[in-house]
């Protein structure tokens, strides 16, 4: 599946801004799930400096600076993305119990023993593969720790344990957690802001995609599992018989859980689906703070108004 994405962010300030420095994470990643065929970022007015770098989580960051006085700032990101064929997550071998995974994340070196055990039963992993898998476990373990927006709390663990019953396979349990969030929580854009703690989301059972993602991540981490935050886009379809409006799509967020020997699997608790052919990833991190699409420092400007328009078009 191929998509074209246009993401326009616009700031309007009450006063002139004399200098503004920004970091944008608006270039979709290329990874095992998708290829970024081409991507461009336009900034208006013309930036005095623009550079790019790859961050700690391998997201592409665009650094730019506006040294001239301005009252509006428009950042337009356009990309063409090829989604790669994904196996149905339900069809993957769900061979590790969540407790096994927790153990492996703490002791990646034990993977070899597990593999040998399992090898006798089914697949034959080569030695090279095992060491690659160990490295990947080592990296994934970072996402089992609390992060700025996702502290760990006993209440999250209690909530999670209803899905993560003893001995239950990890993927199966994660499906259940996703479904429970989808069914028990109400989507309510008026309830939360960026600073609403996830405990409040859990208590009031309300929120938006970001809250649900953070909550699920908190639940998984409270059990010692590795979960990461994914920011991106989702293709939306207009109501039957209506034409799709321009700019009507939006940014989206979901979570991914780490499964040894398979890797990161994406779950979308807002829609109760796994990411397959409608989810386009922009950036990943421990939580929203790692993937903020556009952040900056301004000198002057007074109050500001932000507007965002996203178009996701299937090609």
């Amino acid at each position: 599946m191929r998509y074209k994405i246009k993401h326009v962010t616009r700031y309007e300030y009450a006063d002139f801004v004399s200098l503004c420095q920004n970091h944008a994470r608006l270039t979709p990643r290329s990874d095992h799930k998708q290829i970024n065929l081409n991507s461009r970022i336009y900034v208006e007015p013309e930036p005095g400096y623009i550079d790019q770098y790859m961050d700690y989580y391998h997201n592409q960051v665009t650094v730019f600076e506006l040294p001239t006085q301005h009252k509006t700032l428009t950042v337009t990101a356009e990309s063409e993305i090829q989604l790669l064929e994904q196996p149905d997550i339900r069809s993957l071998p769900d061979k590790y119990s969540w407790e096994d995974v927790r153990h492996l994340l703490r002791h990646p070196e034990c993977l070899a023993e597990y593999s040998i055990e399992i090898q006798t039963l089914q697949c034959k992993a080569s030695e090279g593969q095992t060491s690659e898998n160990t490295d990947s476990l080592f990296s994934a373990a970072e996402f089992a720790l609390p992060s700025p927006f996702v502290p760990i709390h006993p209440e999250m663990k209690q909530f999670a344990e209803l899905s993560f019953t003893p001995g239950r396979p990890l993927i199966d349990a994660t499906y259940d957690l996703m479904a429970r969030i989808f069914h028990e929580f109400q989507y309510d854009p008026g309830f939360s802001t960026i600073s609403t703690p996830i405990l409040a989301v859990l208590q009031h059972k309300k929120g938006v995609c970001q809250d649900f993602a953070h909550l699920a991540i908190g639940c998984l981490r409270s059990l010692g599992l590795a979960a990461r935050y994914v920011s991106g886009y989702i293709e939306t379809l207009p109501p039957e018989g209506q034409e799709k409006l321009e700019g009507a799509d939006a940014t989206h967020a979901w979570f991914a859980v780490y499964v040894p020997e398979i890797g990161w699997l994406d779950f979308d608790p807002t829609n109760n689906v796994t990411a397959k052919d409608q989810h386009i990833t922009v950036a990943v991190g421990r939580d929203f703070s790692d993937v903020t699409p556009l952040k900056g420092v301004v000198f002057g400007g007074g109050s500001n108004r932000l507007s965002v328009a996203v178009d996701v078009t299937r090609l």
């Binding site: 802001t193 940014t251 932000l306 965002v308």
Partner: peptide, 16 residues
């Protein structure tokens, strides 16, 4: 020196 202010993406309503 004008005071620098952080500017961050903060409007949740924009998200699904």
């Amino acid at each position: 020196t004008k005071t620098a202010r952080p500017l961050a993406w903060s409007q949740m309503a924009q998200q699904i």
